[in-house]
């Protein structure tokens, strides 16, 4: 409540979710439900691609909502709600990653073996070299390849890509979530997309994949 109502109202107009969050701040249970309903799928999508596991993503998402709920009294509408939410999500995911790497559990950085087998990237590199015989790709195979390509990105690149792709976030918003300057986001995304282009272009050009890649 410390924040002037006028600025809160300004955000109200621009972002209905900010309005919802302000209602949550005032202990409106229905508003919280509404927020969960609105954001759960989006949050889950980003988190699942980020950590590579559905169950973990669900746990993380809940943790995110818990934090939203917990900090509602301190909420000040200073940005888009989604930016705020994904900032929390980024923190939650980072914490989880740290504690998991301490526990030597799961490598959140990417799946150890994706749908393409043990070394999808090696195989992809081979494919890119054009040295392997090819066959036509179907849609699900293509999805697998894209999945692997994305999960092969670094954590930060991946998050930037996901926010850009799924959340349609501006560099400024991504920067806010990731605590980077827009210029740093620009460079991060450009590297990420170069990596993606490198991996995916061979498939794009031929629409085919190496025959030996059959999962």
């Amino acid at each position: 409540m410390a924040l002037g109502e006028s600025s809160a109202q300004a955000y109200d107009l621009r972002d209905p979710d900010v309005r919802l969050m302000l209602q949550v701040r005032d202990d409106d249970a229905a508003a919280f439900e509404e927020l969960v309903l609105r954001y759960q799928a989006r949050l889950l999508t980003v988190l699942e691609h980020l950590c590579g596991r559905r169950d973990l993503a669900e746990d993380l998402a809940q943790d995110v909502f818990l934090r939203v709920y917990r900090s509602r009294k301190r909420y000040q509408p200073g940005a888009k709600f989604s930016t705020w939410l994904f900032t929390i999500a980024n923190n939650v995911a980072s914490n989880a990653r740290r504690s998991m790497s301490r526990r030597r559990e799961v490598n959140v950085e990417g799946r150890e073996s994706g749908p393409m087998g043990a070394n999808p990237l090696d195989q992809m590199a081979l494919a890119a070299s054009g040295l392997m015989p090819t066959r036509q790709l179907d849609k699900s195979e293509m999805r697998d390849i894209v999945n692997v390509a994305v999960s092969a990105l670094s954590e930060r690149q991946r998050l930037a890509v996901l926010l850009s792709k799924f959340e349609d976030m501006s560099y400024a918003d991504i920067g806010e979530v990731m605590e980077l300057s827009p210029q740093a986001v620009k460079s991060l995304l450009s590297r990420a997309r170069a990596a993606l282009r490198e991996v995916l272009t061979p498939y794009l050009e031929t629409g085919e994949r190496p025959a030996s890649n059959t999962p």
Binding site: T45, E48, R143, V146, N147, R193
Partner: peptide, 12 residues
């Protein structure tokens, strides 16, 4: 085109 391919990524 590479970017568009990312539309294939499943949504949860």
């Amino acid at each position: 085109r590479a970017w568009r391919l990312l539309d294939e990524l499943p949504r949860t």
